[in-house]
Nucleic acid binder design. Sequence first.
RNA 1: GCCGCGUUGGUCAAGAGGUUAAGACGCCUCCCUUUCACGGAGGAAUCACGGGUUCGAGUCCCGUACGUGGUACCA
Length: 509
Amino acid sequence: MSKKVRVRFAPSPTGGLHLGGVRTVLYNYLFAKQHKGDFVLRIEDTDQSRYIAGAEEYIIDCLKWCGLNPDEGPHVGGDYEPYRQSQRKDFYKEFAEQLVKDGHAYYAFDTPEEIEAMREKQKAEGKHTLHYDHSTRGSMHNSLPLSPKETKEIIDAGTPYVIRIKIHPGEIISFEDMIRGTVEFNTDNVDDKVLLKADGMPTYHLAVVVDDYLMKITHAFRGEEWLPSAPVHILLWKYLGWINDMPKWAHLPLILKPDGNGKLSKRDGDRLGFPVFAMNWTDPKTGELIKGFKELGFLPEAFINLLAVLGWNDGTEQEIYTLDELIEKFSIERVHHAGAKFDYEKAKWFNHEWIKKLPVASWQLTVKNNFINRGLLIEDDNKFNKVLELVKDRCTLLTDFYEQSVFFFVAPEKIDVDSIKPKWNDNKQMFFIELVRAFELIQQWQHDDLENTFKEIAAAHQLKPGELMLPLRIMLVGGKFGPGVFDIASVIGKEETVKRIKYTLGLFV
RNA sequence: GCCGCGUUGGUCAAGAGGUUAAGACGCCUCCCUUUCACGGAGGAAUCACGGGUUCGAGUCCCGUACGUGGUACCA
């Protein structure tokens, strides 16, 4: 009987939830759900200097919007509380002390200045590694050469200290990554990482191991930027005596900038005009607002979909997936090894596909609120839905609906008369005057009747409907866009149609 | 610098020794459409380089180049 699958997303609440972060959540979530396991949210807030108010709530809101809700977490509780590392301080200290006792870690009393001096010295000697490691720890200020009694005296005297892991050189640490296969590291290149900071808080390295163990995590998926510190974590699992319970690892490829090179950052979004965060994030310190996919008009279904296939595919030609399909088909082994450049054009294509795929009712409210925010109140839901249905083919973002359909509710402010003037003549003028008269008499204000009336009068004036259609369109919508003219006329109604034609006609005299 | 990871069209990518090297986005052309889209049909465009192994290599091995990540009392 294998253990129940348990995965975790462990963000540091420092503000904003990045695309890559959401993808990590998604892969965790898909894997957990596929295996009928648990998805836990753990807040890695061990760096007090980076505390950002509201960041934790923001992350939870983002997950909620995406529909990737954790089974356990600080907001919902669970069997392994607490889920904030700042509240689990005592656990870490206990295990760090244990490691010291077992000879796998030691106290270090060096000040930052002393460490900096050591690095400078190494640099001056032309050494390549600027590490606190087996080659340098002998000359540093730590408990290694001291007796337990001496050490205790220093600590009791109030000397600030950290606890460092003691890495033995010359060992090969290897492990199986679910995506990359066997990965090897030589401990010659790994330094004596700090496990417990001077303020008593653990570093990520200690905390992640302790919590993954205590929370019975079976599979740990994280960004590729963690790969180099994997040997430290593995050693910790070993030294703590838990190696048989170590989760299986998977290091996810990074999401890169679309142009140039490097990891995608929030700055790139500003620079290139696309969102990087899931939802709007306002930095409480600077007041700076970073735009989110949600507010820019993305559907969560599309956001999830595009993230899922950025670095993963099921080997078929399918590209559009519902969350349930993803849960069924996702496989961590098929995740690409290389980083992927983010392509905003394709992201928008996904959104467009989802707008067309989903029933209007599922996003109608979002668009409605969007209209309200722009000062357009919607009273007639029936008409509103009809309009959305009519224009959805030409909207890639939810925010596009406004421009594509305001004219259904308010007469256009500007009429593009320049597009009709050059070919305007008295005959056309006469045609429209008569059209207005005929429209006013129509009993059944319906698409087909309007079109027939239009064509009959055109024929009577020996005009081709084609040369009349564009002027009519411009009179109704203001420009050269929008759905079929008679669809528009039938929705806005007789009174409004007649009014708009008359208005434009008035511009010619 | 050192260590790790990676490298198929502009982008996302399929491909697990023998294929005309899929597909999608974007771009271009045409059709449909009496606007713009949607839809449909085409098109241009790719295995980083050099050595091996093999009858045969995008696929396996080794180098090189390039990219990327790490190298903190940040995660």
